[in-house]
Amino acid sequence: MKNKEILYLVIPCYNEQEVLHETTSRLTEKLNNMINQEQISPDSKILYVNDGSKDNTWKIIEELNASNPLIQGLNLARNRGHQNALLAGLMTAKEHADMVISMDADLQDDINVVDEFVKKYYEGNDIVYGVRSARKKDTFFKKFTAQGFYKLMLMMGVDLVYNHADYRLMSKRSLENLESFKEVNLFLRGIVPQIGYQSTIVEYERNERFAGESKYPLKKMLAFATDGITSFSIKPIRMITTIGILIFLASICMALWSIIQHFRGVTTAGWTSLIVSIWAIGGLQILAVGIVGEYVGKVYLESKHRPRYIIEKYLK
């Protein structure tokens, strides 16, 4: 069994001033216990990534870095979103660590399973996914929308680990391969399974947020789902083609029916059916243009090859 390999905990932060001290206290205790038990190297660290926070998040990270030898800080030049901030932390940590665990700052991810993550890594797994065992603490609406999100993604052909967010362990070599994925519109939950190294899962029960507000309201979750689908699946475009074919076949049937009715001498007003048809076909056309536009827009953004993040400062 491997011993004393370097572990980094990468934690993206956006307006997390309410939780940082408590998060640091608990994670420091956890890492020190693992170091004392010789599960990980004394060179292991906690890396906070400040994603353009508008509160005192970065100031607190600086203070923690000055007072706690386990704490490192990465400050992005501007807000780039959770996925880009996470990637910035992962790519920075891979230069120093043998294994990296990503988690949220709000203490919802159960830090008690970090030992199990590391154990699975030593057993030969390059990627260990944290998977929620249940959603007992979620509201009905949260549970319904979250499960709907995963089912929709799977239906659209996106390769996801069910009930897994971004709580995972990745080995150094899996992170080196993650770096080769160059897309600007990041959806790490879909990218990581494509790496293909040996992987496993660890189940845990997600806690309630320690303090502050959720950074993923419904609006952001819908945008996140759209990014995931359009980044990994062309099924929506194929659905447009299928709907177009069905409407064309329906129009042929309607034309034949109209001809038959004409020769039978049957006349009807037809105003309602005409208006409904116009609205339905018009709506489908606008929807189709919008879906195609999502893909065209992504191609446009990817073609610019702009940096996914810019690091302003790294506190070691």
Score class of each variant (00 low, 15 high):
1 M>D: 14
2 K>I: 14
8 Y>N: 13
10 V>G: 06
10 V>Y: 11
17 Q>S: 08
29 E>K: 13
34 M>R: 11
37 Q>H: 15
37 Q>E: 15
37 Q>N: 15
44 S>G: 06
47 L>D: 03
48 Y>H: 02
50 N>R: 03
58 W>K: 02
62 E>P: 01
63 E>M: 04
64 L>W: 01
70 L>C: 08
73 G>F: 04
75 N>H: 07
76 L>K: 05
81 G>C: 09
82 H>C: 09
86 L>D: 01
88 A>H: 02
88 A>I: 01
89 G>V: 00
90 L>C: 12
91 M>R: 06
94 K>F: 02
96 H>V: 04
106 D>M: 06
110 D>Y: 08
112 N>W: 14
112 N>T: 15
116 E>H: 11
116 E>A: 10
119 K>S: 06
119 K>E: 05
120 K>E: 13
123 E>S: 13
124 G>P: 15
124 G>F: 15
125 N>E: 11
128 V>F: 10
129 Y>E: 05
129 Y>A: 04
130 G>H: 08
133 S>G: 08
140 F>E: 07
141 F>D: 04
154 L>T: 13
156 M>W: 07
163 N>V: 00
174 S>R: 03
177 N>I: 14
182 K>N: 14
184 V>P: 02
187 F>V: 11
191 I>W: 10
193 P>M: 08
193 P>C: 12
194 Q>M: 15
196 G>R: 07
198 Q>W: 04
200 T>G: 15
202 V>Y: 10
205 E>P: 01
207 N>Q: 00
208 E>G: 06
208 E>N: 04
209 R>H: 00
212 G>N: 00
215 K>M: 02
217 P>N: 05
217 P>G: 09
217 P>T: 05
223 A>T: 06
225 A>L: 11
229 I>F: 04
240 I>S: 07
248 F>K: 13
250 A>M: 07
251 S>H: 07
252 I>K: 03
258 S>P: 01
260 I>Q: 14
261 Q>I: 06
262 H>T: 12
263 F>E: 06
272 T>W: 08
274 L>K: 09
274 L>H: 05
275 I>W: 07
276 V>R: 05
276 V>I: 09
278 I>R: 02
278 I>Y: 01
279 W>R: 01
279 W>S: 05
282 G>M: 00
283 G>Q: 05
290 G>Y: 09
294 E>H: 12
296 V>T: 04
300 Y>S: 05
302 E>F: 10
303 S>I: 05
305 H>V: 09
309 Y>A: 03
314 Y>F: 10
